[in-house]
C-alpha cells in the first residue's frame, strides 16, 4: 500500500496513474450520459444552441409513436426466441464437444467461427443465402416454402434475424458452457456413476444445478446482446420489408440520425437502457440465489 503524506504527493500519484483514463472515461461515457439525460427533458441538440426545458414532452412523443411500440414488441419477441434457442443450442454444442467424440477441437473451432466476424459481414452473407441460395434450392427441390426470399415476408424475415443471431452467438455461449462442464468436480461425477446414475439423470440432477453460474453469465450476455442487436439488423433486412423488422436499436438510430428527432430518440434510448438494466440486474440476482455448492 502507498501512503502519500502531502497533498502534492497525492496529486502526483493521481496524475501519473489515474488522471488520463478517468478524464477520458468521463468525457466519453460520463458527459454523454449526463447530457443524454438532459436531452430527454429539453430541446437541446448540441453546443451553441439555446436550451429550453420541455418537461416530459420527449417521453410523450416517444410513447405516442406507434413505430416505437411495434419495434419494442418485435424486440421482445426477438429476445425471447433468441435467448432460448441460443442457450439450448449452445449447451447442446458444449455437451457434444466435451463428449468422447472424435475431432472435438475441430468441431469446437467451427462452431465458434461466426463469432469472430463482424455482424455486418455476417448479415450480408445470410442476405445472399436467403435471397439466392434458398430460393434456388427451393425451386430445385420443389419446396414452395423456400421458393420466395425469406427477406420479403415480414414474418420469415423476423425468423431470418433470429437464425443469424443464434448462429453468431451460440458459439460464444458454447465456450461458457464448456468452461462450466470442465469445471464440474470429478469426485461428484464419479460418485454419481458409482451410485448408478445414467447419462440423462446425471445431466438433469447434477450437471444442470451445478452449472447455474454458467447459465447466469450466458443468459446475461444473450439478453444484452439480443436487446442491442444492430449490425445484423441493418445488413440483413435493414428493417424491411416496410419497417416490419426494425428492432429497437435500429429504430432509435433511424429516428435520431435519419429523421433528426434527437430529443425523442434519446428518450427512447433511455427507456431501452432502463428496460435492459432492470431485466439484466433482476435476472442475475434471481439466479445468484439459485446457485448450489457441490
Amino acid at each position: 500500500m502507498y501512503n502519500d503524506n502531502t497533498f502534492l504527493a497525492k496529486l502526483k500519484s493521481f496524475s501519473i496513474f489515474a488522471m488520463i483514463p478517468l478524464l477520458v472515461f468521463f468525457a466519453v461515457v460520463g458527459i454523454p450520459f449526463i447530457f443524454g439525460l438532459m436531452m430527454t427533458f429539453t430541446d437541446w441538440t448540441g453546443f451553441g444552441q439555446t436550451i429550453n426545458f420541455t418537461g416530459l414532452e420527449n417521453y410523450r412523443v416517444a410513447f405516442s409513436d406507434p413505430d416505437f411500440w411495434n419495434s419494442l414488441k418485435l424486440t421482445f419477441k426477438y429476445v425471447v426466441y433468441s435467448v432460448i434457442i441460443t442457450n439450448v443450442l449452445a449447451f447442446t454444442l458444449a455437451l457434444i464437444v466435451t463428449s468422447k467424440i472424435k475431432a472435438k477441437n475441430f468441431f469446437r473451432a467451427g462452431f465458434f467461427t461466426p463469432n469472430l466476424i463482424g455482424g455486418v459481414i455476417l448479415g450480408f452473407i445470410w442476405q445472399f443465402v436467403f435471397s439466392r441460395i434458398l430460393i434456388h434450392a427451393g425451386e430445385f427441390m420443389q419446396i414452395p416454402f423456400l421458393s420466395e426470399s425469406w427477406l420479403v415476408d415480414p414474418n420469415k424475415a423476423f425468423w431470418a434475424l433470429v437464425i443469424v443471431g443464434v448462429w453468431k452467438n451460440s458459439g460464444y455461449m458454447m465456450l461458457i458452457y464448456i468452461a462450466g462442464l470442465m469445471g464440474l468436480p470429478k469426485s461428484v461425477m464419479e460418485a454419481a456413476s458409482i451410485d448408478g446414475a445414467g447419462g440423462l439423470q446425471k445431466l438433469l440432477k447434477i450437471k444442470l444445478p451445478l452449472m447455474i453460474p454458467s447459465f447466469t453469465i450466458s443468459l446475461f450476455l444473450t439478453l444484452q446482446r439480443s436487446f442491442m442487436v444492430f449490425d445484423i439488423n441493418i445488413s440483413l433486412t435493414n428493417g424491411g420489408p416496410f419497417k416490419m423488422t426494425e428492432l429497437i436499436t435500429l429504430h432509435i438510430y433511424n429516428d435520431a440520425f435519419l429523421s433528426q428527432n434527437f430529443g425523442s430518440g434519446q428518450a427512447k434510448a433511455f427507456i431501452l437502457f432502463v428496460i435492459v438494466a432492470v431485466i439484466a440486474v433482476s435476472q442475475v440476482s434471481i439466479m445468484k440465489k439459485m446457485e448450489v455448492e457441490a
Partner: peptide
C-alpha cells in the same frame, strides 16, 4: 451496463459540435 446505444446520440451531438 450502459449500452452504447444509450450514449450515441449525445455523443455525436457533443463531439460533432466540437
Amino acid at each position: 451496463i450502459i449500452p452504447f446505444q444509450a450514449l450515441m446520440i449525445p455523443f455525436v451531438n457533443i463531439y460533432g459540435s466540437f
